[in-house]
Nucleic acid binder design. Structure first.
Lengths: 219, 219
DNA sequence: GAACTGCCAACTGTCGACAGTTAACACCCC
DNA sequence: GGGGTGTTAACTGTCGACAGTTGGCAGTTC
């Protein structure tokens, strides 16, 4: 299957600009200068403005009349509220996954867990990439496209909040255990337990992020 | 507090176009002709394209390369998946509302229920407007802005799916009872019961919509 | 010295025009 | 007459230019 050669410039701009925001190249609080970014991407302001509108409706940018777009800076209150949303979505996904999972789903989940643990025990931090892969595998098992889409958007915002934060090893260790417990609940086909395990997991992650954000604030 | 007199044309276009889609003036399946709609709104294609992008990321429009935007037509499978998302969000909202409600919240909820019942017993159908008002009041009690925002977006899509469908009285009667039961659970501060009541309510609404959509299909 | 006023540069908001693509119609060949 | 092909009109994708607004800076006044 070959993807269309000609993607629209606006479409490319969405991806490129999203990358600039999520990697922190345009840091929280910074404004997006239309002419500058358009020149940087080698396009005109038209398609870029369309891309900005789209990212604004994904909450990666905030629009202010006559003052353009800027990357939102998160408050602790924001983080809490965002994790309420994430919890609602991912607990539901965990429930559905426990109801609908196939053997292949469980294998995939165990595989991701094993790789995470290998990387962690090799002395390195286990990369955030693998954490995302785990949650993605769980969403695949849930087979609920609309929930999956919303989780993707929320995770994006979490990535934005994470920029500048570092996971510490104890927290990582706990997360690995959480993931294993989640897979067990899903494998056992126990929606109730899957949901409550996910809730605890996300509560821990949220608390960790709040702690690190406090730390970063008083640097 | 005076709102800015000068809202951007793109911003106005978002509202106007959303209205056109939600009222069914641009029906499901229909394409959005940029020059035609731009002329209709009295603006140029630039701002309109920005508005189209935004509505597309709200899933009220679908973009196809070189063939513009069209209003999506829902399949039964879509409806089911969308209600999985709605259930995840509104059950969480019901839980939070039961934990956080104030006396004022409960009063407001009872008020909306009473008005719905009055309208219904007056022989008319109780307007969808009051159903939305009830769910809105519940969201207010939940005090979770991000969840509220997502519910708003999902409800919008439900409104789109509803275009062309009519509620029948038995279903409306059941919904009124559901709403009352929900208020009781919230007033009692019982998150568990609020959540399960909401789940049953939405399951009923979803089943009703699926039945009506089947009916409409074989007209 | 502080505050107010008027100007100026930078940037956003909007438009009209041009280029490229798509889809439908007419035409031609078999 | 059916299928394939060339043509054309309609529409989307993109750009450059102009108008309006904002925020800062210099100059002036008290």
């Amino acid at each position: 299957m070959t993807l269309p050669v000609h993607r629209s410039l606006a479409g490319q701009a969405v991806d490129a600009l999203r990358e600039l925001v999520l990697t922190g190249e345009i840091p929280p609080g910074a404004r997006v200068n239309e002419v500058e970014v358009a020149a940087r991407l080698g396009i005109s302001r038209g398609p870029l403005r369309e891309a900005i509108r789209q990212l604004a409706s994904e909450n990666l940018l905030v629009l202010v009349a006559h003052r353009g777009a800027h990357v939102p800076a998160a408050t602790p209150e924001d983080i809490r509220a965002l994790f309420e949303l994430r919890t609602a979505l991912e607990c539901a996904a965990a429930e559905l996954a426990a109801s609908r999972r196939t053997d292949a789903d469980v294998s995939r989940l165990r595989e991701v867990c094993a790789e995470s643990r290998r990387t962690y025990q090799a002395g390195e931090r286990f990369p955030y990439r693998l954490d995302l892969a785990f949650h993605q595998a769980l969403l695949d098992a849930a087979r609920s496209p609309h929930i999956a889409e919303q989780v993707r958007l929320v995770q994006q915002r979490v990535v934005l909040l994470r920029s500048g934060l570092n996971d510490d090893p104890p927290h990582q260790h706990a997360s690995l255990d959480d993931h294993d417990a989640l897979v067990d609940a899903v494998a056992a086909g126990d929606p109730q337990r899957a949901s409550s395990t996910m809730r605890k997991h996300l509560a821990r992650v949220c608390a960790q992020m709040l702690a690190e954000s406090d730390l970063a604030e008083s640097h």
